[in-house]
Nucleic acid binder design. Structure first.
Lengths: 211, 211
DNA sequence: TTGCGATACGAATGAGCGTTAGCTAGCCTC
DNA sequence: GAGGCTAGCTAACGCTCATTCGTATCGCAA
C-alpha cells in the first residue's frame, strides 16, 4: 500500500491544477524550447503532476499551441484597433499603433516568442486561419503608412517594406527585454514608436537630445 | 533477388551524396520546420538515400545544426569587418554595416531563419561559444552608434536599443523576402540601411521622394 | 586481379514521445 | 451517507526517433 514510485505525491497533498495553469506552463516552456522541443512530460513536471493528468485540461498537445497563438493574435488586433480608434492624423495613428505593439512585446514576451517561432508548427485549419489574422494586422498598419504618404506626412519608397521593418523591430523586443532591467516597458515602447516614425520618414522629429 | 522494398533504389542507380549536400538539405528543412521539427528521415528522403547512410557524412544530428550556425555567424562577422574596414565616418560605417547585414538576410534566408530560431536548441559548449560570437557582432555595431553619438552624427537616447532595433529589423528580412519578387536583395539592403540611419537619428537624410 | 576506402543498404535497438484506458480519492450536492 | 463529478494516478500502447551494426557494392590504385 506504500507509494509505488518515490516521486509520486501522497494522495493527501496532490495538487489541483486548472486549464489556465496548464496553458501558462506550456507558454513558458514553448517560449523557451519551442513547441517541438517541449515534451508534455516537461509541462506536467513544471505543474507537479503526471503527464496523463494533463488530458483532464486539454484535448491534445496541439490544442495548447492553438490556444496560445489564437489568444495572442486576437489580443494584438484588439489592442491595435483600440489604440487608433478615433484618431485621424496618420502620424499619431502610427505612433499609437507602434506603441501598443511594442509594449505588448515587452509585457507578453513568452507569447510573442511562441507566435514568432511556432506558427509554422500549427496544423490546418488553424494555420490558415491564424495566418490570415496576422495579415489583418499587417494590412491595417500598412494602410496607416499609405495614408500618411498620401497626406505627405510620411516619406517612404515602399510602405510594405517600412511596415515590415517597423513590425519586426517591435517583435524583436521580446528577444532581449528583461523585467527589472534598465528600461521599463513604457520607456521601450516610447522609444520604439519614435523609431517607427523615423523609419516612416516623418520629418522634423529628431528626438531632442541636443541643441 | 528482387528489391525488398519498392522504394529502394536498385544498386546500379544509387546516388552518392557529399557532406555539403547533407548540410544543404538540413539547412532547407531546419529553416522550414525547425531543428526539433525535422527528422533525419526527412533529410535522407530529400537526398534520395536511407537514414543510416547519413552517418557516413556526419557525426550526429546535432553536429549539423552546429555546423550551420557556426558557419553563418562566422560569415556575419567576416562580412561586417570587411564592410567597415578602413571607413572612419560613423554614418558611412553604419550604412555599410547595415547594408551587408540586410543583404545577407535576403541572400541567405535559410541560414538566417535557422540561426534565429534554433540557437536555443544548441547544446553546450557550442551554445556559449556561438552566443559569444553573436554578441561580438552586436557589440561592434553598437560601438559604431556610440561613436556616432559622441561625434554628434547620430542622436539616440539608448545606443543599445537602437542597435537591437536595427539588427532585428534586418533579421526579419529573411521572413518575408522572396527571390524573384518585386525588389532585388540589393534594393532591399539599400532601403534598410536608410532605415538604420533614420533610427540612429541621423539628421538631414530623408529619402528624397518629394521636392 | 586484388585489395582498400568510401558509401550505400537492411535490420535492429533502446529511448522517448503523445495518447488511451481503467481505476481511485476527494468534494459537492442532495 | 449516497451518488456523481472532477482530477489525480499507474500501466500500457503504438509510433517515431536517433543511432549502431554488419554487410554489400562501387571506384580506384597497386
Amino acid at each position: 500500500m506504500a507509494a509505488l514510485r518515490a516521486d509520486a505525491a501522497p494522495v493527501e497533498m496532490r495538487r489541483t491544477v486548472t486549464r489556465e495553469a496548464v496553458v501558462d506552463a506550456a507558454l513558458t516552456l514553448f517560449a523557451a524550447r519551442g513547441y517541438h522541443g517541449t515534451a508534455l512530460s516537461q509541462i506536467a513536471d513544471s505543474l507537479g503532476i503526471r503527464t496523463p493528468s494533463l488530458y483532464n485540461h486539454m484535448r491534445c498537445k496541439h490544442e495548447l499551441l492553438e490556444t496560445i497563438i489564437e489568444r495572442t493574435l486576437d489580443d494584438v488586433v484588439t489592442d491595435f484597433r483600440a489604440a487608433v480608434h478615433g484618431v485621424t492624423d496618420p502620424v499619431e495613428r502610427l505612433r499609437r499603433a507602434t506603441r501598443v505593439y511594442a509594449l505588448r512585446h515587452a509585457t507578453h514576451r513568452r507569447a510573442a516568442l511562441v507566435v514568432n517561432r511556432d506558427v509554422p508548427s500549427l496544423a490546418e485549419p488553424a494555420l490558415s486561419r491564424l495566418r490570415a489574422r496576422r495579415r489583418e494586422h499587417e494590412r491595417e498598419l500598412r494602410a496607416i503608412i499609405v495614408d500618411g504618404v498620401e497626406a505627405r506626412a510620411f516619406h517612404v519608397e515602399s510602405p510594405a517594406l517600412a511596415s515590415f521593418a517597423i513590425l519586426e523591430m517591435c517583435v524583436s523586443i521580446a528577444r532581449w527585454f528583461r523585467d527589472g532591467g534598465e528600461l521599463s516597458p513604457d520607456a521601450v515602447a516610447d522609444e520604439y514608436s519614435g523609431f517607427a516614425l523615423q523609419i516612416a520618414g516623418c520629418p522634423g522629429l529628431h528626438r531632442g537630445a541636443d541643441g
